[in-house]
Design a protein around this nucleic acid. Structure first.
Lengths: 249, 249
DNA sequence: ACCCTTTGGTAATTGAGATTTTCACAAAGT
DNA sequence: ACTTTGTGAAAATCTCAATTACCAAAGGGT
């Protein structure tokens, strides 16, 4: 077993087929939609027989999971590489870079956000779990940068976990809108908006409502919104002054 | 035709069946998942025969679409009603109310965000279109409140359309995380976070990066992020002073 | 009380698509 | 040249769920 065929090694041929299947999957899942693409169609477009398909993947979902993982990895790699380059920069620049590179990577091909944030949603428990893993990774990433900013005094010292999760949610949500919107939303504006959102979220003082002159909660909000009015219950590391966001480190 | 049966009119019986089918659909779609729930299961749980099912709906997707619409309508109704109550309040209170009521409504039953932001995603072109319609409605709503805040001088005067879309995306994304997260995220914190995000996004000055002391873009960002660095290209209505977000109207 | 309409459940049909298998061919090795 | 084995196309099977058809029963009008 394992003969070199057609001039190329068998593993190479195998890898080629796999690659072609993934490419075809990306294309069809994002145009026809995952639900409505048939395995035979993927095979046809890839120029691969169904027999070989099942040699590489266990089914349609396997292809989708692989693509989902790849796209996230690609983005994370890009971001990590770029952040290494600006290792010494100030915290805010790093955060802006993180976001710009992320946006630039995933909007380079609209099929990426389409697959990741639309087609791969609600497909199976495994995929939801995989999504969750990636959300956690990204959130940790963001929270780490925010904490770094706090150390440098350009952001308040607090727990950024939830803010980070919210920002990941904002990113996925906004990109979902971006790839679906008609007329198309300009990438630069979307990137700018998300970046501004991120910076504002991280630099904001702890109690934003108290800032102007409002005593606390809105007036007549019935049973619905009794909760969610105060800032945070326990587990904060103490009252921190609002950290003069302005003068650098 | 049209006899009164079991004491109730035929339209009533019909409506009851429809209602039971919707309830069963909500339950099963959010537990088993839309993909994996069979029509017969919905019928069984609802105590309705398949025959009657097809009398009410054209198929599984029809049920899903109806539920999606209902949930959004419910939330919008709640928000509208509550905003009417605080018609005279200051702009920031109104925005906070809008958000609190929305969050309170959709988190009252975790199946709602699960259905709307997970199960109903990527199912069909029609559903994506329906999602888009709702995004637009919500975005208009938010943009209107933001503009109102601008008129009152508590936020800069600018175009809030994209910010509003981003905030809708943030809400959907965050709620998706909320309903999926393990260990569960406390509702109050999620609500507080989203509200802070919203207020920060609306009150933020126009050029957030220039604020500290950074000249502009981050340093060595290669081909990936050439775009999205500058603030906004054209179509702004003129240089607006950063609107003293602090002193009330 | 009888007939007759409407209803609900069950069972059969159909159809689509995924997975497996077969078969013929081509390319290496010898 | 001949055997061996990887490969691709297509046919066969197989599963499973949507849809339809049919029958039994229940409630109401007269």
């Amino acid at each position: 077993m394992a003969r070199t065929y057609g001039g190329v090694a068998p593993e190479q041929r195998r890898a080629d087929r796999r690659e072609r299947l993934l490419t075809a999957g990306l294309e069809l899942f994002t145009s026809t939609g995952f639900r409505h693409t048939k395995i035979t169609e993927v095979c046809a477009r890839a120029g691969v027989s169904t027999r070989n398909f099942y040699e590489e993947f266990t089914g349609k979902e396997d292809v989708l999971r692989t693509l989902h993982d790849r796209i996230n990895s690609l983005a994370l790699d890009h971001v990590t590489a770029e952040l290494d380059k600006v290792a010494g920069a100030d915290a805010m620049t790093r955060i802006a870079t993180l976001l710009d590179v992320f946006i630039a990577t995933v909007t380079a091909d609209p099929r990426m956000p389409r697959l990741t944030y639309v087609e791969a949603v609600g497909v199976s428990a495994e995929l939801e779990a995989q999504h969750q893993v990636w959300v956690d990774r990204w959130a940790n990433f963001i929270a780490a940068e925010a904490s770094r900013a706090a150390e440098h005094g350009v952001a308040p010292v607090r727990d950024y976990r939830l803010t980070a999760i919210a920002l990941v949610g904002a990113g996925t949500g906004l990109l979902r809108e971006w790839q679906a919107h008609d007329p198309p939303l300009p990438v630069e504006e979307v990137g700018g908006e998300l970046r501004a959102l991120m910076l504002a979220a991280i630099m904001r003082p702890e109690k934003i409502l108290e800032m102007p002159g409002n005593p606390g909660a809105p007036s007549g909000v019935e049973e619905a919104s009794r909760a969610g009015v105060r800032g945070e219950p326990g587990e904060r590391e103490g009252p921190v002054p609002a950290a003069d966001a302005g003068t650098g480190p």
